[in-house]
Nucleic acid binder design. Structure first.
Lengths: 358, 358
DNA sequence: ATGAAAGCGCTAACAG
DNA sequence: CTGTTAGCGCTTTCAT
């Protein structure tokens, strides 16, 4: 254990040169004698010199840290997003600081406070469902810290946004059911507030309309708390109705899994009597029996894109370039499994694999 | 957008006092006039003063950042660990910087470099399976940056370690099968290198021995690549053997799920013909049919503990207190579902719920 | 090609 | 009670 980390000063003293000279030598600056440079570099290596990043960050007022706030880490979609963010950030030498809001506005606010300590260079955030005020984010922007919104976005502020095409994904899922001959298609929504839920609902409705099918309020179940139990319960309700559906599009996979269990428990066949399709393509989607068809979101790619964007904005701000806000819409893909097409169209052990449309 | 963030100097100038005076007023130091203090605070608020953390961190040579390196974020166990780490860290005002090694030693090494930029105060790491040299971690320790190992630990260095009692978890799982009357119990291991795998193997073996059962090499399948497919394949092998097992303990849930599918595809009954128990209690464990019994690791709690420990060590180092390394062994719990006890012992819709032993 | 000086924003030590 | 001085480690002028 050395008494203290060695600094430019130490090297300068031992070599009898000035501190700036050492700095120049070590940073490949011009205006430095070849021989001096060699000696400096040699000694630096011998002493195992490591620049003090606190000093450098202080000087540059820059941390190379990107803050990320998401509602929940233990979550298939978000953990993939994070993975994409980190991988992309590392390529440019940025590090990622992670916070979770647990869908609480207060917690989100507190996080913004906590990481002021670390002076993040930029923030990527997926808003909590309970955030109805974004002053804390505008405040960051005022301090020249760019903000990129991802997935759970808002119109309350101007910023670059990354979303996936929930509308088209839902439309495709519903169209898929219709193409299979289903005519009475139900829908279980996600939490009421997020725009994602509304978009999925809109896609469902428009697909029905485009195919000349009626939109029946009785076949739509609103579902604030997302869980298998809730999906099970609502599906049971739907089954007991006079107007029983022959297909269902669930806005989330957990509710779809509950729906599958409800259908099986009722002695009905999937997909013959009722076909089921979910949204998100959770890792458990292919585990359930029958394997669940679902809409896959480009989670990892959304994270990558967010990272690239925020870094671009950070650098533009630093170079006093104007930044223009863009909204990136990324496309989903249909993952078709037995819960919609049955076993006949899939190879026997294909259960674990994908068949991807578009 | 203000031209520049306002500093103590700005306040001092406007008030005609010195900079340290302003500092004292704002930091509740003694030796400050009541009236001066009031005026300073008032102006600071009016100007929306925010201390420059770069300067503070520089001065203190402290970042309040904990680095975390784990093999994979998109992973039920690790995402829970991370969640625990972050939650606990926030309580003490620390932020968490996250890296994933993707089970690559090089990537792990590169992360250690990258976050030198951010000068983390301490590191929590779960080693990649391919890490056989920990000089990069010892190097951190030499720089007075404490390191806490979690789950994937090593004997190659001295440090505090957090592990779960894989041995006992495996022992309990095997004992559970034996208690159900199973006498010919197979085992599918996890990746060969991690100590966790060896411990689970040891627990399996010792439980057999303690019950006077033979340990048969033919019933043990080594499995470097963990996947459903691999579990399916090995289970098929086991079934086709003359000495067919009547129970199986899988060191990971994915292989257990593959095993379940293999047993079902072979027309055998679970658990009557072959009972199955896994390890980790992944979220898909209760989705599979029949729901999978498994050993639950205290993932979130391990993260919490790691956070608390690293912060303690950081503070001890800062106060020049000696730090003593401890190894914390945290206990697992058995989650019993239908794959071992069948439907009879569980209520019908209990499928989604737990029955926890000890 | 090198050194001297200054400053980033803050705090601690010392002096009145 | 308050101001002066000094320094954290580094980089960027500006002289020489």
């Amino acid at each position: 254990m050395s008494k203290h980390n060695i600094s430019l000063k130490d090297i300068a003293r031992k070599l009898g040169v000035s501190i700036p000279t050492v700095s120049r030598a070590l940073n490949n600056k011009p205006d430095i004698g070849k021989e001096t440079k060699r000696k400096v570099i040699e000694l630096a290596k011998a002493l195992n010199y490591e620049p003090n990043q606190f000093a450098i960050n202080f000087k540059n007022q820059q941390s190379y840290i990107i803050g990320v706030i998401i509602p929940k880490i233990v979550h298939h979609f978000f953990s993939n997003v994070i993975s994409g963010i980190i991988t992309e950030a590392e390529k440019s030498g940025y590090s990622v600081m992670l916070f979770q809001s647990n869908e609480s506005y207060e917690s989100e606010l507190k996080s913004t406070q906590t990481f002021k300590r670390s002076m993040i260079d930029g923030l990527i955030i997926s808003l909590s469902d309970n955030t109805h005020n974004v002053d804390h984010l505008k405040n960051l922007q005022d301090h020249k810290i760019p903000v990129v919104l991802i997935d759970k976005v808002t119109d309350m502020m101007e910023a670059s946004k990354i979303v996936c095409n929930d509308y088209k994904g839902a439309y495709d899922a519903t169209q898929h059911l219709i193409s299979l001959g289903k005519r009475n298609i139900a829908h279980i929504t996600g939490a009421r507030k997020p725009t994602t839920t509304k978009e999925r609902y809109r896609g469902y409705k428009d697909a029905l309309i485009a195919n000349g099918l009626p939109v029946k309020e009785g076949l739509i179940k609103y579902c604030d708390l997302i869980s298998e139990d809730k999906g099970y319960y609502e599906m049971k309700n739907l089954i007991s109705q006079d107007d029983r559906p022959d297909g269902i599009f669930c806005a989330t996979d957990p509710t779809a899994i509950g729906a599958i269990n409800a259908i099986k428990d009722s002695g009905l066949q999937i997909p013959k009597d009722i076909a089921v399709i979910g949204f998100s393509n959770w890792n458990m989607a292919y585990i359930i029996d029958p394997p669940l068809s679902s809409v896959k979101q480009p989670d990892y790619e959304m994270g990558e894109k967010a990272s690239a964007l925020i870094i671009e904005e950070i650098q533009n701000i630093r170079n006093e370039q104007p930044i223009t806000f863009k909204t990136h819409v990324m496309e989903t893909s249909l993952i078709i499994r037995e819960s919609t097409v049955g076993k006949k169209d899939l190879n026997s052990r294909d259960v674990l694999n994908y068949k991807i449309i578009e």
